[in-house]
């Protein structure tokens, strides 16, 4: 049985790894955005994510008490030790898929951080408050795009629906609750994901209806992030993200 501090370490890894991997994915667009303005927007969002990741991983290191820094945790853990949500590691593909992924995650974070602000853990509560301002903008930005894809041309709508086929099955993973979640919810530290799921559904449904698309039904949901079971994409992301730090340990700018 894990004690509360071991659960909290695990929980902070989840909170840190999710924005870390999403930020890394978004950074792949740097210099490749469909227009200059959107290139800057996506890298801005990426930087917001990396900032959130740094804060949560630093805190994870403090909780663990083994002198691991944010960098140690980001660059020197293996695939199975990562706890990011599966949806974050899914490929960018086209702009529609990137924006749909962003929307589904931002809608989650919007409600998740609002709830986490009430955490009995003061550090988590403060980090949630800071992050919420950022994700509110990410949510707004990606929702506006969804409405335009849905109501735009035949092609924009087709691309959005293709992205839906690729991504929807990873949304269930966001709400899986294991013993860590349950234990920390009892301690009033963690957010209750059942509650978040209801709010998330409502927000997603609202934007989908403005975009003129239906909520997918009866889709088999993938899960695994809580246990570090990832899709085949994470290994490739880590190879790219960690290669420099692992080739030159301790290197600095």
């Amino acid at each position: 049985m894990k004690n509360t501090s071991e659960h909290l370490f695990e929980y902070c890894l989840r909170l840190g790894d999710t924005p870390l991997i999403l930020g890394q994915r978004l950074a792949e667009w740097c210099g490749h955005g469909p227009i200059l303005e959107e290139d800057i927007a996506m890298t801005n969002i990426s930087l917001d994510c990396i900032g959130q990741a740094r804060a949560f991983l630093t805190y994870a290191g403090e909780i663990e008490g083994k002198d691991r820094t944010e960098d140690d945790l980001a660059y020197f853990r293996n695939e199975r030790e990562f706890r990011n949500l599966l949806i974050t590691e899914q490929p960018n593909e086209d702009f529609a898929q990137t924006m749909l992924r962003q929307f589904l995650i931002s809608a989650f974070h919007k409600h998740f951080y609002s709830e986490l602000m009430r955490s009995a853990d003061k550090t988590l509560s403060a980090l949630a408050e800071k992050s919420l301002k950022e994700v509110n903008y990410h949510f707004r930005h990606s929702s506006e795009w969804l409405k335009r894809f849905g109501n735009g041309t035949e092609e924009s709508r087709t691309r959005l629906m293709n992205a839906m086929d690729n991504l929807w099955r990873y949304t269930g993973d966001m709400f899986d609750m294991d013993e860590t979640d349950k234990h920390l919810v009892e301690c009033k530290i963690a957010a209750d994901l059942d509650k978040i799921k209801t709010l998330w559904n409502k927000s997603v449904e609202e934007v989908f209806s403005e975009a003129g698309i239906d909520m997918p039904k009866d889709v088999f949901m993938m899960s695994g992030s809580r246990k570090g079971k990832h899709t085949e994409h994470l290994g490739h992301i880590l190879a790219e993200m960690q290669s420099l730090a692992r080739s030159f340990p301790g290197a600095s700018w």
């Binding site: 303005e37 959107e38 800057i40 707004r140 335009r148």
Partner: peptide, 9 residues
């Protein structure tokens, strides 16, 4: 979108 782009740029 102009407002959002302006915010970002």
């Amino acid at each position: 979108m102009a407002l959002q782009n302006a915010r970002d740029v």
